[in-house]
Design a protein around this nucleic acid. Structure first.
Ligand SMILES: [Zn+2]
Ligand SMILES: [Zn+2]
Ligand SMILES: [Zn+2]
Ligand SMILES: [Zn+2]
Lengths: 163, 163
DNA sequence: CCCATGACTGTTATATAGTAACGTGGTCCG
DNA sequence: CGGACCACGTTACTATATAACAGTCATGGG
């Protein structure tokens, strides 16, 4: 099945500026609709996170913020991240203490993040079969599964090829 | 389906001392077989983690170590944790920065951790259906899923009842 | 216009989590 | 004994995240 072409894993070989502008425009639209305030800092943090499809760490965001212009401190970054997480515009990768932009429709949703151990590229999917089986397993143990992101580690096709 | 009695969620209403002694004896046996050295400190850390079925944080382990007798420093705890993780005797819960004892057979294995957002009790299962579907979804995206623990958040039966 | 209000950001300090680097003291083996 | 190795102690440090409080700024009601 033509795996690379399903567009889940996006390496450095695509027109990523399109991803960025689309993500930012979607965010603008989404926030405008909901009356959420995508302020200058929040938008800039989102843009930094969208530099690639790899997770970005909070203090790296801070460094980049500080490279251009005004000095910021950790709370500024974490507050922006809280907003973006809440709005469903980014996800946190617990296993890496890092953040990645959400390529799916904004808003609260469940998702599975395929995190490559080789290149750290993240592919986000939302597969109803996984969600279904998690609910089902949960039910069997009296456990009410919350909508959430699940992190799945492995190797992407490209990194497997690297031997 | 008689959910509480499947023994996946163990709250404070059971004879937990039996869990502890069984876990420690299993660990003794497993390490002896493999020539792994379950030293005094490592065994003590394992015992502290097994105080309950809730995840325990590294610095809490350190505090407890230091309450009785000799003073230790963070590296001591983290080295013990590295050993226990490597041996498959405990799991790390990334979303909580905490550690929990593994109630299944020691050694490297995949598992799913049902983490209750209410009481933080953790139930560990290893369901082949989940493993299967993860592999299958991965394959569809050219992604080789690694054996791993997956964290699933939700509410256990007891905490759902608490309204 | 002016102020009250609430949301956002700045600032400082601190809490929490994890690691690097190097030294010490056993234990095993020859 | 003499090395080799492993576990552990110790110090210092890096990395991640939050608390608390003070300024700023838009916005709408009087
Ligand atoms: Zn892209
Ligand atoms: Zn990769
Ligand atoms: Zn128990
Ligand atoms: Zn619970």
């Amino acid at each position: 099945m033509n795996t690379e072409s399903d567009a889940t894993f996006r390496h450095r070989d695509h027109d990523h500026s399109a991803c960025v502008s689309e993500a930012l425009e979607d965010a603008d639209r989404y926030c405008a609709q909901r009356g959420l305030r995508l302020t200058r800092i929040r938008r800039r943090v989102l843009e930094i996170i969208w530099q690639g499809h790899e997770p970005v760490k909070a203090y790296d965001i801070l460094d980049q913020l500080n490279q251009s212009g005004r000095r910021s401190a950790p709370p500024t970054v974490y507050r922006a991240l809280d907003f973006l997480l809440e709005a469903g515009l980014v996800h946190r990768i617990d296993s890496l203490n890092a953040f990645v932009g959400c390529p799916l429709a904004p808003g609260e949703h469940s998702a599975q993040l395929l995190v490559c151990s080789g290149c750290e590229t993240v592919a986000e999917i939302d597969d109803p079969a996984i969600r279904g089986i998690l609910d089902q397993i949960g039910a069997r143990h009296g456990f009410a599964v919350e909508p959430q992101t699940v992190e799945i580690k492995g190797l992407c096709e490209r990194c497997r090829g690297d031997s």
